[in-house]
């Protein structure tokens, strides 16, 4: 068990080093950071909502979108570079099991996404804090109650976003284990992310009565096979306190995310064990 963890760790380490050296990662990180910073100058377009909400929506939107792109494309690229360049042959001829290889890829990619989320969230926190101080000073002068944001909520959101991206990476790895090409994996992985964002529609439909058992079965399978990625988007409630988060809801979301993550990694490992390299 200890040896297995160690081998997984070495694969993760090299995967992380390979990923952070990619220009694609640097490009998306810079682009997302620019989006967070530009939210300050674009806040005049807040459409009547609070300024902090606009800044938060803009920044977290960038983190969500570019994080998803990075999770899909980078994970597929890291997997297929090992297969296409045949480095996987060298590694898998050693006493390294295929689940260890896949888990190593997962943790390496997840660590990179952790850096991505942490950098962007830190930047977002600084931007929100700076604007909050200005708004507090202006509110005190006007005798109004100032708008504030929660640092603890921001930290919770970072963890939720990281977990959400972990689920996406696990799905993409399961697809990669089955797929033959990088392009197929990216297309199907992207569709899976979109389906995850829209999964709540299937949940709503499933709760409504229907006469068709086939349709009900389809909805039942869809709502269990596809994770609800919307459940991780609690930025307004956690960071801006727009609504109360029910007690235990955060834990339920985290457990659901971890369950999907484990299920897709297990599925990916089972498929990858049968794959001929």
């Amino acid at each position: 068990m200890k040896d297995s963890l160690r081998r997984t760790l070495w694969i993760s380490r090299v995967t992380f080093l390979e990923a952070v050296r990619q220009r694609f990662f640097a490009f998306l990180l810079v682009l997302s950071a620019a989006m967070v910073l530009s939210s300050v100058s674009l806040r005049v377009f807040d459409f009547g909502h609070g300024e902090l909400k606009f800044i938060a929506d803009f920044g977290f939107g960038g983190m969500f979108f570019f994080g998803s792109v990075l999770a899909v494309v980078m994970t597929a690229q890291l997997f297929f570079s090992e297969i296409d360049n045949k480095t996987a042959l060298t590694l898998l001829a050693k006493p390294l099991s295929r689940p260890e290889f896949l888990l190593g890829k997962f943790f390496g990619a997840w660590a990179v996404l952790g850096v991505f989320v942490l950098v962007l969230a830190s930047l977002q926190g600084v931007v929100l804090w700076a604007r909050e101080q200005e708004l507090i000073a202006a509110a005190e002068q006007a005798g109004r109650i100032p708008t504030t944001f929660s640092i603890v909520g921001l930290c919770q959101l970072v963890l939720l976003q990281w977990l959400r991206l972990g689920v996406v990476i696990a799905i993409v790895l399961a697809i990669s284990a089955l797929a033959r090409t990088f392009l197929f994996t990216v297309v199907v992985g992207s569709l899976a992310v979109v389906a995850g964002q829209l999964q709540w529609i299937a949940q709503d439909a499933f709760l409504r009565p229907t006469d068709s058992p086939a349709y009900a079965a389809f909805l039942w399978i869809s709502t269990r096979l596809i994770p609800n990625l919307q459940q991780f988007n609690l930025a307004d409630a956690l960071v801006l306190g727009s609504s109360a988060v029910e007690e235990g809801a955060l834990i339920a979301v985290c457990l659901s995310g971890l369950a999907y993550l484990a299920a897709y990694l297990t599925l990916g490992s089972l498929i990858f064990r049968q794959r001929e390299i």
Partner: peptide, 15 residues
């Protein structure tokens, strides 16, 4: 107990 050198080996260039 086995060592393997594949045909036309390719390794991570940054290492």
């Amino acid at each position: 107990r086995t060592g393997f050198l594949p045909e036309a080996p390719y390794f991570h260039k940054f290492l």
